[in-house]
């Protein structure tokens, strides 16, 4: 299982890449393994939306399961991955790269402190 050390994680299997005041969000390798073959991704927010922490931003479906993706931090949406709904299999093949879902401008960078680092997340996935 791949858990990059440069990312932050939630206990609901989202990852966050922080670059200055911008956060990019997607789902982890562990999440895609649990889901198996992803056949559908729907991003349910729009650029410009101001969102609270834990808002559902996307839905991911495989043939056997469905999962909501929740925003780990509050912020304003500045970009969404328009290509992902056409190529949902990217969630399986490149969860930390081409399968990014949205980018937000952080409201409160301190919220990042509540997230797990790679070691913490790895421990979490084994529980």
């Amino acid at each position: 299982m791949n858990i990059p050390t440069n990312l932050k994680y939630t206990n609901t299997d989202e990852w966050v890449l922080v670059d200055g005041n911008t956060a990019t969000i997607g789902v982890t390798d562990h999440a895609q393994e649990q889901l198996s073959d992803v056949v559908f991704v729907e991003i349910t927010v729009n650029v410009g939306d101001k969102l609270a922490k834990k808002t559902t931003i996307a839905t991911v479906e495989s043939v056997k399961a469905a999962a909501d993706v929740n925003l780990p931090v509050s912020g304003k949406v500045i970009a969404i991955n328009e290509d992902l709904p056409q190529t949902p299999e990217l969630v399986n093949t490149d969860p930390y790269g081409k399968a990014w879902m949205i980018k937000v401008e952080l409201d409160n960078p301190a919220e990042l402190d509540a997230l797990m680092d790679a070691a913490g997340y790895e421990k979490h996935t084994k529980e």
């Binding site: 559908f40 479906e61 495989s62 043939v63 056997k64 399961a65 469905a66 909501d68």
Partner: peptide, 14 residues
């Protein structure tokens, strides 16, 4: 049967 992930037995209260 396809797109079953929309249905009650998988998505339950959602």
């Amino acid at each position: 049967l396809t797109l079953t992930a929309r249905e009650q037995h998988i998505r339950r209260e959602k």
